[in-house]
Design a protein around this nucleic acid. Structure first.
Length: 298
DNA sequence: TTGCAGGGGTCAA
DNA sequence: TTGACCCCTGCA
C-alpha cells in the first residue's frame, strides 16, 4: 500500500477493525486530551470512542500498536491515515524542538501527541463555541448541536451523532438553536453557517492560503477572533506555523520563557521567533504540559 | 441553601 | 482598553 510506505506502519485486519503495528509517537490520551478536539468519550478500557468525518471509531494505543475498531482498510486509507497524520515523522519534530531544555521537558509529558487533521467546517463551529467556555461545556454544546442537526449512528448499543454537514443544515430551522446551550455564541454559529452556505466563506479556498491571509479571512466570521482563527488553522488547515494563545498558553509562555507578564502579541512574536514553522507542535506539547501540571495557574 | 465569580475570547464602545 | 456576554460549576 503506497500510502504506508513513508511510515513503516503494518496494518492487520482484526475482528471489527484494524491493528496497526510500528506506529511511533502515538498516544491516544495525549492526542485526544490535548485540547484539539472535543468529540470523544473515554471508555473504561482507556480506549477512546471518537466521532469524526461522519464515522464512529474506537481507538486504543498500546506502545507502538494502535487498535482501531469499527473501521476497515478502505476508511483507514481514505480517512484515518490522514486524520491521525500518520505520514509525519514526529520524532524529528520532537528532536528539533528538544534543542530547548524547557521544550524537552514538556515533550516528555505529551510524547504521543499528534495534531489531527480535522474537518475545517466542524473545527470552525467547534472553536466558535469554545470562546470563553469550558471544555465539558464545549463538548456538550457540540454534541447537542450534532443531535439536533446531525445523523445518528449506532455503535455498541449507544447512539452517536455525526457533526452536521452544510447539506444537513440546508433545511434546518434555527429557531431552537438556543437549546444547544451555546449561549451568546448561537448567533455567531447561525451567521457562520449562513456565510459558508452561501459561499461568502469558502473554507477550502482559505485552507490553500498562507496562514496570515487565511487568518484574516476567517476573522470575517463573527465569533472568530485571533485565537479561534489560529485554532482552525492549526487543527484543520495544517498551518503549523501558528501558535494559538489562550489563557493557558499565555500563562505557560510567560512563566517558562518570557518570565514576565506579556501581551498576546508579544507571545505570538516570541513563538514565531523561537519555534518558527514548528510553532503549532510546540504549542500542543506546552498546552498539554501546562494543563497536566496546572502550571501558571494562579 | 443561596449567591457570586469566572471560564481554552470576541465584540463594541 | 474595558465590560458584557450564556451557561454552568465550584466554593463560600
Amino acid at each position: 500500500m503506497d500510502y504506508l510506505k513513508q511510515s513503516n506502519i503494518v496494518v492487520e485486519v482484526i475482528r471489527d477493525g484494524l491493528l496497526l503495528k510500528n506506529v511511533y509517537d502515538f498516544n491516544a490520551k495525549h492526542i485526544f486530551e490535548c485540547g484539539q478536539c472535543f468529540r470523544w468519550d473515554k471508555e473504561e478500557d482507556n480506549s477512546y470512542t471518537v466521532i469524526a468525518f461522519g464515522k464512529v471509531i474506537n481507538v486504543k494505543s498500546n506502545g507502538n500498536e494502535v487498535r482501531i475498531l469499527n473501521t476497515d482498510i478502505r476508511d483507514f486509507k481514505e480517512i484515518w491515515f490522514e486524520y491521525f497524520d500518520l505520514g509525519r515523522d514526529y520524532s524529528r519534530i520532537k528532536t528539533a524542538l528538544s534543542a530547548d531544555d524547557t521544550m524537552k521537558l514538556a515533550i516528555k509529558y505529551g510524547e504521543g501527541i499528534r495534531i489531527l487533521k480535522q474537518d475545517p467546517w466542524e473545527t470552525l463551529i467547534s472553536f466558535i463555541i469554545s470562546a470563553n467556555n469550558r471544555i465539558p461545556m464545549i463538548a456538550r454544546s457540540i454534541n447537542l448541536f450534532s443531535q439536533m442537526y446531525g445523523r445518528a449512528i449506532n455503535y455498541n448499543d449507544k447512539v452517536y451523532y455525526t457533526f452536521p454537514t452544510i447539506k444537513d443544515l440546508s433545511e434546518a430551522d434555527f429557531s431552537d438553536i438556543k437549546s444547544c446551550k451555546a449561549g451568546f455564541r448561537c448567533k455567531y454559529i447561525i451567521k457562520a453557517i449562513e456565510m459558508v452556505r452561501n459561499g461568502e466563506m469558502n473554507l477550502e479556498k482559505i485552507k490553500s492560503m498562507k496562514a496570515i491571509e487565511a487568518e484574516k479571512e476567517l476573522k470575517k466570521i463573527p465569533g472568530v477572533g485571533i485565537k479561534v482563527a489560529n485554532c482552525i488553522l492549526l487543527f484543520s488547515m495544517q498551518k503549523y506555523d501558528t501558535y494559538p494563545v489562550d489563557v493557558w498558553m499565555k500563562r505557560i509562555t510567560e512563566e517558562l520563557f518570557l518570565k514576565r507578564k506579556s501581551k498576546v502579541g508579544e507571545i505570538s512574536d516570541f513563538a514565531q521567533k523561537r519555534f518558527g514553522d514548528l510553532s503549532g507542535f510546540a504549542q500542543e506539547y506546552l498546552f498539554y504540559y501546562a494543563r497536566e501540571l496546572k502550571i501558571g495557574k494562579s
